[in-house]
Design a binder for these strands. Structure first.
Lengths: 209, 209
DNA sequence: ACCTGAACACCGTTCAAGT
DNA sequence: ACCTGAACACCGTTCAAGT
């Protein structure tokens, strides 16, 4: 029974299962063999559907960033556009934190990524920003989103914070990081994004000169 | 000659060679075997000096972030402190772009990282920011730095931009990304950091209420 | 077209042995 | 204390073969 009558695999099933395993076990634990095992198949069968593991991870990245919202630019207000885009982008990655590094790795030219970049750039230029500044602004927001998704605040702190509290007195305030990590990350991103937009406002050509 | 009279290895040599190989060949190409080969030794010998590959990468991360400057907070001005810290942090990572993902991975509780976080938090609180807001602000700047270092702007665009110029008209302005990628990344970070600081200014408790 | 057995050239890491 | 030969349990990927 080398070839079953109804195929056991298809691209979507492989991709969705890969994302589920990343969510459950982490990115490092995803191997072609472990994924095949979960699908009741041998690793080589996956290569009938994706040429390489990287191509599979690209498909997962496309799945993740599929529902990013650039419609906020439609009304012509770049502030609304940036806020809507940044928040939906961040939310898409925060929903699958263990998969976020795939986005940072940024393999190849993904269609959805290009469509998004095009919509944002067009929205900013349409709202009056010079083309080069529009490039810088969209890069800035991307930095915030990717940074927030790949290095949540608790990263870098030991689980047992008591270890260093004596030596680093200013960090005493952060001693409940573990409990409130999700809230801190959400609020940090929100503060950063809104402050950035406010700071950009002052640089808007028709307002600031 | 199992054990030479003068040791062929020490922790610093291993660490520095690892960083050099990452700079030259990329993070993925660094294996314990390839590193040992470069040092004229077998992979197992490295384990006499570092318990795991992760511990070695931690040492590289500490080397990278060693010269980050938090002295800008000393004068009591949080704007100067944030700008100096953010710029030196970003410069440290930009000097070794292929090693930057190590920082994002953020393994364990590195001493230098904690000292830095403590200095920044203390500087912000000392300048009048509430403790929790200080946490959010330092996280915000870290997002910018890590995002800029791990996803430089050209990431995600194909080398041959002609491929998508027809379909994504707004990206025409970005058709020289490859040539100016370094300048765009520098300017994007600078715009983001200064805009963020300006936006925070309006939220400063004694100024904004 | 889709799946498998076997294999290639790698990994990180461990262990016993040598000086 | 420091280094090596050999080995373990993995990787991603390829190839020839089966239906």
């Amino acid at each position: 029974m080398a070839r079953p009558t109804t195929p056991k695999l298809d691209r979507e099933l492989i991709r969705d299962t890969a994302l589920r395993l990343i969510d459950e076990r982490g990115l490092d634990a995803l191997s072609m063999r472990s994924l095949a095992d979960e699908l009741g198949v041998r690793a080589q069968s996956l290569y009938s559907h994706y040429p390489t593991k990287d191509a599979l991870l690209d498909a997962v990245a496309n799945l993740l960033t599929r529902h990013i919202d650039t419609s906020g630019f439609d009304g012509g207000d770049w502030r609304t556009g940036l806020l809507t885009w940044g928040r939906s982008y961040r939310a898409a990655l925060a929903a699958h934190p263990r998969a976020a590094p795939i986005i940072a790795a940024g393999t190849g030219s993904r269609e959805d990524f290009l469509a998004m970049a095009d919509a944002v750039h067009g929205g900013l230029v349409g709202a009056g920003w010079p083309a080069r500044t529009a490039t810088l602004i969209s890069a800035s927001v991307k930095y915030l989103v990717v940074g927030a998704a790949t290095t949540p605040f608790a990263t870098g702190f030991a689980d047992d914070t008591a270890v260093y509290l004596n030596r680093y007195p200013n960090l005493v305030q952060a001693h409940r990081i573990g409990e409130h990590a999700a809230a801190i990350d959400h609020d940090s991103f929100e503060l950063a994004l809104t402050s950035l937009v406010d700071g950009l406002e002052a640089r808007y050509p028709q307002a600031g000169g």
